[in-house]
């Protein structure tokens, strides 16, 4: 082979591999999308062509599944988690980014480390305590434990964004006559706004997808969407068409949000270890 042929061959191989990887990635998602529009009978056959129906989406919101309630719970819990976490995390992140604190490294590492504590460890005492104070199966309880997951990510991610704001600008504002709090309000917050939004969306996705806490702490009133998946079982087995419809309701909003903040996803997950 000449150099040119070799190159063309190599390119073709690469393209082939990329297409294959993409298929492996997309087919399961596509399969669920298709199943969600299939009728009960079509789902139990390996059919690529079928008559699409919206019936499944109607069914999941009806008795006995009432997915609407779970959707509401998920939205409320994830939203509240974010609304509590982001301001608190922003304050801390600003301080960690701009000042030298006593015990700063210890605090930052501890915060980082809590992310790696297995959720089952955290949940055992919370279960006992919530049972005693009546927080089991409440959204409030769920929000509280979700903060454990979300806070470290939020603090580290926002700290990364604030680190990226040039110090010059803040100092200029101080010389221009601002107090520290005015600097934060007039300069830092507007400049960090895209970062805060990104961190907010990121935490929303984490809270939305959270499974173990909700599985253990909720049973009826505060059940969230991922736990709701367990509903679609009948005596004859899983109701795949309904499961798929519910699956779409869970994943589609997250896909949209994730695509919005794609650029920062890596940074968020790795807490800045990879820039």
């Amino acid at each position: 082979m000449t150099g040119k042929q070799k190159k063309a061959f190599w390119n073709a191989v690469q393209t082939g591999l990329i297409v294959m990887a993409t298929l492996i990635m997309l087919v399961p998602i596509a399969w669920i999308f298709m199943a969600a529009f299939k009728s009960h009978v079509d789902v139990y056959q390996l059919k690529l062509f079928f008559r699409p129906t919206l019936e499944n989406f109607a069914l999941v919101f009806r008795e006995p599944y009432n997915l609407g309630e779970k959707l509401w719970n998920s939205t409320l819990v994830a939203l509240a988690t974010v609304v509590i976490a982001i301001p608190i995390a922003t304050m801390a992140a600003y301080s960690f980014s701009r000042f030298r604190l006593r015990g700063e490294t210890v605090m930052l590492v501890t915060i980082l480390a809590t992310q790696f504590v297995p959720a089952v460890v955290i949940i055992l005492p919370f279960f006992v305590m919530f049972r005693d104070v009546g927080l089991l199966d409440t959204r409030l309880g769920l929000i509280l434990v979700n903060l454990a997951i979300v806070m470290p990510f939020a603090i580290w991610m926002i700290k990364g964004f604030i680190d990226g704001i040039p110090l010059d600008t803040e100092e200029a504002a101080m010389v221009d006559g601002s107090s520290r709090l005015q600097v934060i309000r007039n300069i830092v917050l507007p400049m960090a706004a895209p970062g805060l939004l990104t961190a907010g969306i990121f935490c929303f996705i984490l809270a939305w997808n959270e499974f173990l806490f909700a599985l253990i702490l909720t049973s009826k009133d505060a059940v969230t969407l991922p736990i709701g998946l367990a509903l679609f079982k009948a005596e004859e087995g899983d109701l795949w068409n309904l499961l798929s419809a519910a699956g779409i309701i869970i994943m589609l909003p997250m896909f949209i949000l994730a695509l919005m903040i794609r650029k920062f996803f890596v940074q968020g997950m790795t807490m800045g270890a990879v820039r």
């Binding site: 993409t22 990635m25 997309l26 998602i29 939305w208 969407l225 699956g247 994943m251 994730a258 996803f265």
Partner: peptide
Amino acid sequence: LLILPFAMSPAL
């Protein structure tokens, strides 16, 4: 597209 599987809940 790579972001999609990660935005999917592990339970799902």
